[in-house]
C-alpha cells in the first residue's frame, strides 16, 4: 500500500508539471488552432535564465535559498514573457492567414533555433541547480514526500486556479474566450484580437517559465535539450485532456503523470516480467491512442463548449 501511495505521489508531482506546460499548449491552440511546438523550449529558457541568476547569487548574498530561487523566477518570468511575445510576433502573426501547415513548420523551426541558441549561450554541459532548497522529507502513511514536492504540487494548483479565474472572471478572460470562438465577431465587438493573442502567449510563457524552474529544481539540473521531451509529454497531456480546453490540460497532465508512474511501477509485476518499465512511455501513449480512438476530442473536449 505504501508503495502504491508513493507511486501516486510521484505521479501527481510529475503530472502537475506536465499540466502547467500543457496549459500553454492548450491556450494557444484554443485561440489560434496552432500547436506551438516552441513552447517546450520556452520552458527550458525559463529554467536556464533562472539558473543563471541563481548561480550568480549563490555564495555572494546571504539570503535564504527560497528567496534566491524566487529572485531567479522573477527574472525568468519577464524574459519568457518577452520571448513568447516575440515568437508570436515574428514567427506566427505574419502567417496567421497562411495554410495551417506553415505556422506548424515555423513552430518547429523556432524550437530548433531556441535549442541551439541555448546551447551557444549556456553550453552543452548540464547546468546544476544548487542545493539551496530544503530537502527535508516527511513520512505519510509509509510514503515519503519532500518539501519540494509539496511546494510544486501546491504552487501548480494555485497557478491553475488563478488561470481559470482569469479566463472565467475577468474582462481579459472574456475577450480571450470571445476570440477563441469567433475572432472576427470579437473584433467587431471591439476586442483587440492581436493584443489578446499576444497576451495569451505572454501568460502561457510566464507559466512555462515557472514550470521550467520547478523541473530544474526537482531534478537538480537543467539542459538546453530538456524542453523537447517535456514539451512532447505536455502536448500529449493537452491532447489527452482535450486540446483547447483548460480543465482538460490540467486533468490530462495529472492523469499522464499518474499513468506513467503507476505503469512503470507495476507493469513488470502485472505481466510477470513479460513487459518491463521500458514500456513506461508506451503505456502513456497507448492510453493516448485509446482516448483518441474512443473520444477524438480528448477527455473533456466536448463537454465544455468554450475554449480559451
Amino acid at each position: 500500500m505504501d508503495i502504491f501511495l508513493q507511486q501516486l505521489i510521484n505521479g501527481l508531482v510529475l503530472g502537475s508539471v506536465y499540466a502547467l506546460v500543457a496549459l500553454g499548449y492548450t491556450m494557444v491552440y484554443g485561440i489560434l488552432e496552432l500547436i506551438n511546438f516552441a513552447h517546450g523550449e520556452v520552458t527550458m529558457i525559463g529554467a536556464m535564465v533562472a539558473l543563471s541568476v541563481i548561480g550568480a547569487l549563490v555564495g555572494h548574498v546571504a539570503l535564504p535559498g527560497v528567496v534566491i530561487v524566487a529572485m531567479g523566477v522573477l527574472v525568468a518570468v519577464p524574459v519568457c514573457m518577452l520571448l513568447g511575445f516575440t515568437i508570436e510576433r515574428v514567427a506566427y502573426r505574419p502567417l496567421r492567414h497562411a495554410p495551417r501547415l506553415a505556422p506548424l513548420i515555423t513552430a518547429i523551426g523556432v524550437s530548433i533555433l531556441l535549442q541551439n541558441l541555448a546551447m551557444i549561450i549556456w553550453g552543452r554541459e548540464y547546468v546544476k541547480f544548487p542545493p539551496i532548497l530544503s530537502s527535508a522529507t516527511h513520512q505519510v502513511a509509509g510514503a515519503t514526500i519532500s518539501d519540494l514536492q509539496i511546494f510544486i504540487l501546491v504552487l501548480s494548483l494555485l497557478i491553475m486556479a488563478g488561470l481559470v479565474a482569469l479566463v472565467q472572471k475577468t474582462k481579459l478572460g472574456r475577450a480571450m474566450r470571445a476570440t477563441a470562438q469567433a475572432p472576427q465577431v470579437a473584433a467587431l465587438m471591439g476586442v483587440n484580437v492581436n493584443s489578446v493573442i499576444s497576451l495569451t502567449f505572454i501568460i502561457g510563457s510566464a507559466i512555462a517559465a515557472i514550470a521550467g524552474v520547478m523541473v530544474a529544481a526537482y531534478y537538480g539540473l537543467a539542459h538546453y535539450y530538456m524542453g523537447f521531451m517535456l514539451g512532447l509529454k505536455a502536448f500529449t497531456a493537452a491532447v489527452l485532456g482535450g486540446i483547447g480546453n483548460l480543465a482538460g490540460a490540467m486533468l490530462g497532465g495529472l492523469l499522464l503523470g499518474v499513468i506513467e508512474s503507476l505503469g512503470a511501477g507495476y507493469i513488470g509485476d502485472i505481466t510477470g516480467g513479460f513487459m518491463g518499465s521500458n514500456y513506461q512511455d508506451v503505456f502513456a501513449f497507448f492510453v493516448l491512442i485509446l482516448v483518441l480512438v474512443l473520444r477524438p476530442s480528448g477527455l473533456l473536449g466536448e463537454q465544455v463548449g468554450e475554449r480559451a
Partner: peptide, 22 residues
C-alpha cells in the same frame, strides 16, 4: 530482485526506484 528500464533522455526515475524500494 528487479530489472528495470529507462531511456537515455529520461530525468524522472521515481517510479522505477519506488518499485525497487519495495
Amino acid at each position: 530482485v528487479a530489472r528495470e528500464y529507462t531511456s537515455d533522455k529520461a530525468t524522472d526515475f521515481t517510479a522505477i526506484l519506488t518499485a525497487i524500494k519495495g
